[in-house]
Amino acid sequence: MDYKKPNAPKRELAIPQGVEKEIFLKAIDELSGDLGKENVELVDKSLVAYQFESNNLTSKTDPNTHDGMHVLDEEEFAASAVVYPCNTEEFQTIVQWANKTKLFGYGGAAPRVRGSVVIDLGRRINKVLDINPDDCTCLLEPGVTFYALYEEIQARGYQHLWVDVPELRGGSVLGNTLDRDVG
């Protein structure tokens, strides 16, 4: 089952609750300065359209701009920005920024609070570092999806190994493990 294409956003940029737009945009500019503008994206109509209309959202990935399996209006859980770190130091920078600005929210592949800033590990920290077919273990960066792990197992010719996935999409191996799930 594929995600349905969202309707054009009815509201402006989702600003975190209790934060003035100017303060939020200043904080985002600060983070962009630390990580590079290409690694911090405001969630606006163009990003949502890019994910859905340019085949950037496939059965292998989840949306990072909003809840793809929403129960309420799809904009109720819209993110305000998506941040793409590439290493531990950048992740630490994001956490320090979030603690300083108080712009942080809990979520899975999508935010649970409108206006949250999403940290997406899947774009730049997504390599399968090692697969040991003898003891059936692997070493992964945190953004590796189940589908990417499956593809790497196949590419290395380890057809006797298999991945027990919790969903048909690209769910995160690390995220699933941290959530004490099975798979």
Rank of each mutant, 00 (worst) to 15 (best):
M1F: 14
M1Y: 14
Y3P: 08
K5N: 12
N7L: 12
K10H: 15
K10Y: 06
A14W: 03
V19T: 10
I23S: 05
I28A: 04
I28L: 13
L31E: 00
G36C: 07
N39H: 04
N39Y: 01
N39K: 13
V40Q: 03
V40W: 02
E41I: 00
L42S: 02
K45C: 01
S46R: 13
L47V: 04
V48E: 02
E53H: 06
N55K: 05
L57M: 07
T58L: 00
P63C: 11
N64P: 02
N64A: 04
D67V: 02
M69T: 14
V71E: 13
V71A: 13
V71W: 05
L72P: 01
D73I: 03
E74V: 13
F77L: 14
A78D: 08
V82R: 00
P85G: 05
C86K: 13
E89L: 10
F91N: 08
F91G: 03
F91T: 05
T93V: 07
T93S: 15
Q96G: 05
K100I: 01
G105E: 09
G107C: 11
G107V: 09
G108N: 03
R112A: 14
V113G: 03
G115M: 07
D120A: 02
D120Q: 01
R123Q: 07
V128G: 11
V128M: 12
D130C: 09
D130E: 15
I131N: 05
N132Q: 03
P133L: 06
P133G: 10
C136N: 09
L139C: 10
L140D: 07
L140F: 12
P142T: 06
V144Q: 12
A148N: 05
Q154R: 13
Y158H: 15
H160C: 03
L161Q: 08
V163P: 13
D164S: 14
R169G: 11
G171E: 08
N176F: 04
N176L: 05
T177H: 08
V182H: 10
G183E: 06
